[in-house]
Amino acid sequence: MEEKLLVVENLTTSFHLQNGWFSAIEDLSFTLSSNETLALVGESGCGKSVTAYSIMNLLPKPGSRIDRGSVLFHGKDLVGLPEAEMRSLRGSKLAMIFQEPMTSLNPALTVGQQIAEVLYYHNGTSKKEALKGALELLDQVKIPAAATRLNDYPHHLSGGMRQRVMIAMALAGRPEIMLADEPTTALDVTIQAQVLALLDDLKRELKMSMIFITHDMGVVARVADRVAVMYGGYLAEVAPVENLFANPVHPYTEALLKSVPRLDRDINDLNPIPGLVPSIDRMPKGCRFAERCEHKIDVCEQQMPDLTSISDAGNHSVRCWVRGAQATSNGESQA
């Protein structure tokens, strides 16, 4: 059996709102293998980012907590790990890049200083050596004239360049897992493509695993090996990327794919999903997608279905009363 680098089991994270604690992600279980890219997909507010912050132990405190579950990294549970130990993993073995390159870099420190810092604190290199390392990293993320950029401040750089700096910073600790939280959402389309290509190259080159958070199905098709579709804090469907696009089973996945505009189809075929993701303090009792679902039956509004495997290979799972049962009874399998 291939080695699982990261095993997330029954992870439940809650946030404190005015009228109590509410779970933002619930009973989340998935795995990540070496060299694999897992895409976490879903609408805003479905818990994608909370998942990443829970893994990194970067949840805003006070105001949020992990209620249950475990995050096993090389078999070691990151939940409840002492802060000092967690800190030595953050930025080295586990790195994260964020959505907003404009605000995620410190305006008062030079690009070089911000990258060198990672080397200085994690590898114990001298400040001078660390700056040299920063220069190499800037080269690696293909920033032109890297030597002159080293002393630039973030406000001298464009959005795409800043995101490259963020990536260089994340790479500095030679991470095994890179968590990318919508890294291209804030960028222009042409720059998006460049940054995606860069991430893809680096991932291969450095043999990293990646958790790629996005709501963009086009990006998913490009970068992901496997896809986990999230809705209302639950996993709705997990499948290899080809299976998911060829044969979406969960009504939400289906709807999500139908809502992507495509050049080869009439604009009138575009089917937006009616309604919004309910906020975490107003979640329905049963299946959280039920009120927006075209296929719902009585049981959907009563009880949450389990995530069940529907393929012989065991790599396609879905959480749906209607489709899950159909798929299993038909003996449908995803090759």
Partner: peptide, 22 residues
Amino acid sequence: REDYVRTAKAKGVPRFVVITRH
């Protein structure tokens, strides 16, 4: 509350450095 403070934490920089330098 700024994003770059979160970035600094994600880099694994010691807390004191996050508070002072960042």
